[in-house]
Every structure is written in structure tokens, then in C-alpha cells.
Design a protein around this nucleic acid. Sequence first.
RNA 1: AGGGGAUUGGUGUAACGGUAGCACGACUGACUCUGGAUCAGUUAGUCUAGGUUCAAAUCCUAGAUCCCCUGCCA
Length: 588
Amino acid sequence: MSDERPLNFIEQIVEADNASGKWGVWEQGDAGEGEAGRARLGRPRVHTRFPPEPNGYLHIGHAKAICLNFGLAARHGGKFNLRFDDTNPSKEEQEYVDAIKEDVRWLGADWEGPHGGGMFWASDYFERMYQFAEELVQKGLAYVCELPAEEVAKRRGSPGVPATSPFRDRPIEESLRLLREMRAGKHANGAMTLRAKIDLASPNFNLRDPVMYRIVHEPHHNTGDAWCIYPMYDWAHGIEDSIEGITHSICTLEFENHRPLYDWFLDAINRDRGPGSRWGPRVRHPQQIEFSKFRPTYTVLSKRNLLKMVQDGVVRGWDDPRMPTLRGMRRRGYTPEAIRTLCEEIGVTKVEGFIEIAKIENAIRDHLNRVSPRRMAVLRPLKVTITNWPEGKVDWVEAVNNPEDASAGTRKVPFAGTLYVERDDFMENPPKKFFRLSPGAEVRLRYAYFIRCEGVKKDANGEVVELLCTHDPATRGGDAPDGRKVKATLHWVSAAHAVPIEARLFDRLFNAEEPGKRTGHYMDDLNPSSLEVVRAQGEPSLADAAVGDRFQFERMGYFCVDRDTRPGALVVNRTVTLKDSWAKAAQG
RNA sequence: AGGGGAUUGGUGUAACGGUAGCACGACUGACUCUGGAUCAGUUAGUCUAGGUUCAAAUCCUAGAUCCCCUGCCA
């Protein structure tokens, strides 16, 4: 565990709460079953949740929230809930529910495991929310307003100018009757709303008598046609947290202005509640805490923008490996471990900044370097003929599977008279410090032989199409008995044994750190060449690679076998390149 | 104009009145059968101006800049 890491401000709050006993301790019946439940008994309660609205796919920004909430529960022996905030039937779909569950589980936030509190729906609480609403009406804290939406907007007021509603002081009985009629379906969409009676003059517009219920005659993916009024976020969310016993209700910065509302609603419910009260006992009042979102450079994250990219065909779908969605990143080859580490490393604060792509790439490289089996594959093949190689001879040389992990073992790779090497590894007129192949130069072919370039063949256009090289038989295995050194080691593939591979090479989707910053239109910053597909050639062991397998193609980067793979037609995605100090030097 | 937040190297993040540290990046060098990895090192920071204090990133005052807020979205 990373106990060395300093606590972020939310962890500090949790620690302080645990020390003060603010949320009590886990008790029998609350702690849960099994070993985890017994371990929880008597410990301070820490109960978090991830509350997505099922109206889109999860992206890297959500990963931060998931890791934060789940991590908090896990580290303190508490619980983590997955809760679908399905309060708006006109935007939400079952399709997203399944996708979200899959992604959350993939990330490792198991709501059913030892730290899981379970899976819930906001719609599970619709009846209770409604009862609370009637209670608020009866307490004189809410009223039915018959202003049409446009009229409410007009009467919203401005800083310094209060809002107005002619229905604010209507009799309680009238509001109650109308609320019941609303529920019974006697009124059309938009005819009226239930509003909280808070403060029409508040400088915080969220407090200017916010809508609690609106009429929506539309079937709900969970409750069907049981309801035609649906609760607004601010009214619903605190109740959901309260019912589930959430202790720390963590959300992003834009909800900071809503916190007074979160508190007001729970306080309103609790007004006059307590022992002997006609309303019943007090309800729990969790603490809302806000943190800043994960904002990577060179991408967009909003649902609307991502959706448009899918619809416009800019990408090939929600799981396009260039997408910042969790399914996109998964298809690209990102590991949940790397994403979790990344979320740990970027920290949790209220500062709105950018996370550099380099930081994200570092996380995945670091993990993949440790676990990925190495293979040789030539992305842009250039034919090499070993002129002094015995006709028909095949030499199987031994290659290390992972220099970072001795237990990964070795494998045999065939070497023969016709090979492919990387086109970029040859230059006819090399600049200084180019250590690779050029006329007269000697290099090592990894795990095999030293070869020397003795000549080139060109096509009609003058382009080099083949290298004629000699090998030194004494260097088999890659070392020269006479002690002479070479400055470069190249990857290679035997042409006769090569497995054809479609390799998809990705670049960032946008050319600007903050897409749309300059022109206001993020599509203006689209990178036209974010995808390059090449016909690569791989070593024969790649023939039985399965979808999802990850490899490091030596010197080229980390690759993941794509689901488009068919028998005999391997397709791989480049997750990320290796760091390449030569490419940098050659550029600059 | 009103309300709510934020401000520490290029980026992210610590330091909670007492040595401004860590990570990513960049740059050197060493090593290397991946120009990868690894190792060693360098670079560079407290938004501004006052004040309190033996001592201020931290406390006080004033200002600057940026973000959020006038959906029957979440």
C-alpha cells in the first residue's frame, strides 16, 4: 500500500471524522456479513458512493471519482455503493447501465466485494422522496407553483433583484392537493412544479425556490409508468445519500454552490423530527465535499462533445481506442492498475488544473514495462537479404520474454536469409549520432547476429527497397568473441516465418492542449492524423495471440490485440510508444 | 455588479508559524543485446503590495487573475 503518500484534504477530513466519532461506528446489522463485516464491527463508519447518471459512458474523469470513493471505503474498512442516479427518464437508458457496471467493475471498484455496500437506484427511493415532499409541504416549506418554465426564467431575477412567484404563499392544503394531483397524473408536462420555499432573494440562485418535482409523462427504464413526476437532482441526491447511510458525499466543484441546498433539504426534513415527533425520527445528514475534476490536456471529456465525435464519425465508436472513455482506454490496452496508480498520483484538491498527457502515459508505460512480454514486430518492413547466409538454413535463436521479469522465461525465434527490419532503422545518408544501419555500418540484430550493410537495391523512383547485408557467424547470440562492439541493436523478423499484422497507431485526437480554446469550437483542433494503420510483420509466436493480450514490441511500444482480430488476421492497437530519445534528438 | 471557489517550478502535488519536498517533464552523465528500463545529477516555484512575528507558502489587510452560478439537466 501507499501509506507513505501524504493524505489529501478529503482523507484528512475522513481521518478527523473517525477520530471525533462523527459518524459513529459500524454496528451489527449495518456492518454486513462475512469476514469483512466482522472486521468492520466497531470501526468508525466510512461509507462512500459513486452516483453516475446512466446517460453516457464513463471516462477517465469518472475514474478519478471512482478510485477516490472506492479507495476511501477500502482503506478505512468501510463500504462503497454503486448508485444509479436515474431521476430523469427522458435522458437515461438501460444500455448505459450495463456499460457503466462493466467499466466500474473493470476498474476494480467492486460494489459487491469485501468493501462493497451494494448497487442501488435513485428510483428505489421515489416513494420515500415523495412522502418527504408531502411532509415539506405540510411544514410550509414547499409549494406548488403553476408558473410555466419560461415565466420562471423571466422572474428569476438577477444579483440584487429577487425572483418572484405569485404562488409562493398559497395555502398548504392547496399545494398538497395539487401535489397529489401531479402525482396522480392529472396535469400535463410543465403545468406546474413543486418548489422549495427557501429564499427568492438569495444571491445563490440555487436557493431561489428551486424546483423539487417536475411533471414528466414518460416511461422510466426502471419504474415503468408508475410515476409521472420526477425529483430534481438537488432534492433527490441528499435523500439518496441519507437513506444509504453515506457519510461523505463526494462530488465535483460545480456542485459547491449546491451544498447549501443539499444541507437545506435534509435540515428541512429533519425540522420537527425526533423522539415523539409525528414525522418520525431524524434522518441522517451526510457531508458533501467537493473536489476538482480530472482534466487531461489534448482531449475533451464532456458527454456532449464525446457523443458528437461518435455521431460525426470522427472516431469509430465509444470504445475507439483514441477515446478517453474507459472502454476506449481498455481497448487501447490501458490496464486498470495503471489508471488506479494514475488517479493516486494526481492527488485530490480543489485546484482546477490540467493533467499532462505525459503523466498519463508514464503511468501506463510504468505498469506495462513490468508485466508485458516482449516480442519482435516490424511496423514498416524493409527487406534485408543476408548474402552470406546458407541457402535454406533456419536458425532458432533464444530470446528473453521480459528483462524485467526473469520468471517470464525465454522463447525461440527463427532467423533466416531473408528478413525484415524497420524502415526507420536504415538511412542511406545518416546524420551524426545515427547508430543504426547505413551503407557500411554494422549493427546487432537482437538475440541473433551482427550484420553489416554492404549494398542497397532501389526501385525506379530511387527509393531503397532492399538491403544487402552480410552476417558474422561468430556473433551468434549477439556477442562478438573478439570483443568488438556495435552501437545499435535492431529488432527484426524472418520474412518466411512472419505473421502479418494490422497495427493501428494512435496519436492524440486534438492538436491543442485545450481543444476549442482558440476558436470556441473544439472540432477546429481535431488532429486529422490521429490514426495511422500499417501493415506490420511479427515474429511467429504472435500467431496465437488472443484478443486483449498485451505485448511490448521491442523498441516500438506497447500493443494490445484488438477485438477486430480474426483467425489469420491479427489486429493490434498501439497503447503507447516507448520513450524515444533518438526521435527527440533527430527532431530538435 | 451579487454569491461561491481557487492561486507553490513547465505540469500535478506536499509542507497545517520553524530546512520549500516529492512525482511527471526537460536537460547532463553512467550503464545497457530495446536510443527502452535502471542509476546518478542538473534545471526551475510560494500571484502582487502592505502588515503581525525572533521567524510567514502558512496569520491579518488590500488588490490581481482564473473557474463556477440566473435548466422544470446532473
